[in-house]
Design a protein around this nucleic acid. Structure first.
Length: 423
RNA sequence: GGAGAGGUGGGUGAGUGGCUGAAACCACCGGUUUGCUAAACCGACGACGGGAGCAAUCCUGUCCACGAGUUCGAAUCUCGUCCUCUCCGCCA
């Protein structure tokens, strides 16, 4: 969530920037500022009353010691009345604070200056394109046919043992998965990311920390018996590592990477979007997470983009980078770049990575701070990105690399797969 | 799953009703000493909020897992919740 300080410093600018996301924040911002004013007055009143009570209580102690019982009893009476009014103030204060927090939670992150205006995915800006478009014959097969033809993935078996969206990878299909994971992790390590192996289920507090709860509750699988949630991305456990933490200067920047299976309920998805590997309930992903000082976060974001771009280039896939417009960005992000690869037989672009800077928005909720040089605590900036999500990469690889002889494995994966063609 | 113990500051850990935001030790930070390092010594050392001040700073409230209660007064007593550890059972 935004900080009160941000809002108070420049309310007009925040309202203006929120409009880029299509969010009308005028009323909420005004209300917060008014509530904060009364909050501070209440705080003052409360403090004074509490201080008075404290003094009285202490004086009763010494009166009792001196055996001045009558005076003590009198003081007790004053305390009783004072306490009532103090409690009323304290309650009002608590309620005001609660309301402020509630409103704050309902306001999305402010998009940064680079974010283009726009409502929908149509308005996203193609920032950069690379890789070569494959030249496939007219009868090229979509990946779900290829998966069947070469016995790589069995969707029906997944349905049998679990349900739709839970594919079973077989033989070279399984090895390809493992190779990609290993390749992505190795590349991340080379780039200085420390590998984490996180739990795949998290508690409620972690869900709140990264903002999956309370609003996106329906998107996660919930283990009700133990009140734990299956992670929708490794971002959740890895970022929560730094919840309620004050990082010392020498621990920054934090660069972590993690492979995990990801679980998403994807309620409401349908049609061609969910065909084959396009959208799954369980999939594999390597995630990169960074925690940075504010002044470095945008440089870090560029580094992350370069990293992801490098992966796609090594895989030899045609890619482009979208700078998401305000309307298509997530609630919590200050700026997001989506990477898409072209899946040649389906003839569509598939999102394989999303790289975002959250600035302090996520850190504020997480209470992830660092000690600055002036010894004061400040909120960190958090960033994350997929590097990369597997299923759509596999879809594109299968489709784009199909030849009459079989599916050609990209050079960079061969040392992991142990084979260079799927036939 | 059964039985027991426990949750205090960055860490270890003292504290059973007022003088405790919290002893002591360790770590970190500043300084003295030193050819350098180490050791020794001295000092500072929690978070969050409010007020005053240009500022250094000063004043003030809250916080000893979380929530409620008892009391003039709670880290300390009562209740509930959550979590951790140990032993037994089961088990990759």
């Amino acid at each position: 969530m935004l900080t009160l300080q941000q809002i108070k410093e420049n309310p007009e600018q925040i309202v203006a920037r929120l409009a880029v996301k299509g969010f009308d924040g005028k009323e909420a911002i005004e209300r917060i500022i008014a509530l904060d004013e009364s909050r501070r007055q209440l705080q003052l009143k409360n403090d004074n009353a509490a201080a008075e009570l404290k003094k009285l209580a202490a004086s009763i102690g010494s009166l009792m010691k001196n055996g001045q019982k009558e005076e003590a009893d009198k003081a007790k009476e004053t305390v009783a009345t004072l306490k009532e009014s103090q409690k009323a103030i304290a309650d009002e204060l608590a309620e005001t604070e609660h309301t402020i927090t509630e409103i704050l939670l309902s306001i999305p992150n402010v998009p940064c200056a680079m974010v283009p205006e726009g409502r929908t995915a149509e308005d996203n800006v193609v920032e950069k394109t690379g890789g070569e478009m494959p030249n496939l014959p007219e009868d090229a097969l979509p990946h779900w046919e290829l998966a069947k033809k070469y016995n790589l993935i069995d969707f029906d078996l997944g349905v049998k043992i679990t349900g739709a969206g839970f594919p079973v990878y077989i033989g070279k299909g399984a090895k390809l998965q493992r190779a990609l994971i290993q390749f992505f992790l190795d590349e991340a390590s080379k780039a200085g990311y420390v590998e984490i192996q996180p739990p795949y289920v998290v508690n409620e507090a972690s869900g709140y920390g990264t903002g999956q709860l309370p609003d996106k509750e329906g998107q996660m699988y919930h283990v009700t018996l133990d009140n734990l949630y299956l992670i929708p991305t490794a971002e959740v456990p890895v970022t929560n590592l730094y919840r309620d933490v004050i990082l010392s200067d020498d621990r920054l920047p934090v660069k972590n990477c993690a492979y995990s299976a990801c679980f998403r309920r994807e309620a409401g998805s349908y049609g061609k979007d969910v065909r084959g590997l396009n959208r799954l309930h369980q999939f594999d992903k390597v995630e990169i997470v960074r925690i940075e000082k504010p002044e470095n976060s945008y440089a870090a974001l560029e580094e992350m983009k370069d990293h992801v771009q490098g992966l796609l280039e090594k895989l030899g896939l045609p890619w482009h980078i979208l700078r998401l417009c305000g309307g298509d960005m997530s609630f919590t992000s200050a700026i997001t770049f989506d990477f898409e690869v072209f899946s040649a037989a389906q003839k569509r672009w598939l999102e394989v990575s999303s790289v975002s800077n959250f600035e302090t928005y996520q850190a504020n909720r997480l209470k992830c701070r660092y000690r600055a040089e002036d010894k004061k605590t400040r909120l960190c900036h958090t960033l994350n990105g997929s590097a990369l999500a597997l299923p759509r990469i596999v879809a594109a690889l299968l489709e784009n690399n199909q030849t009459p002889e079989g599916i050609v494995v990209p050079e960079c994966l061969r040392k992991y797969t142990g084979f260079d063609i799927i036939d």
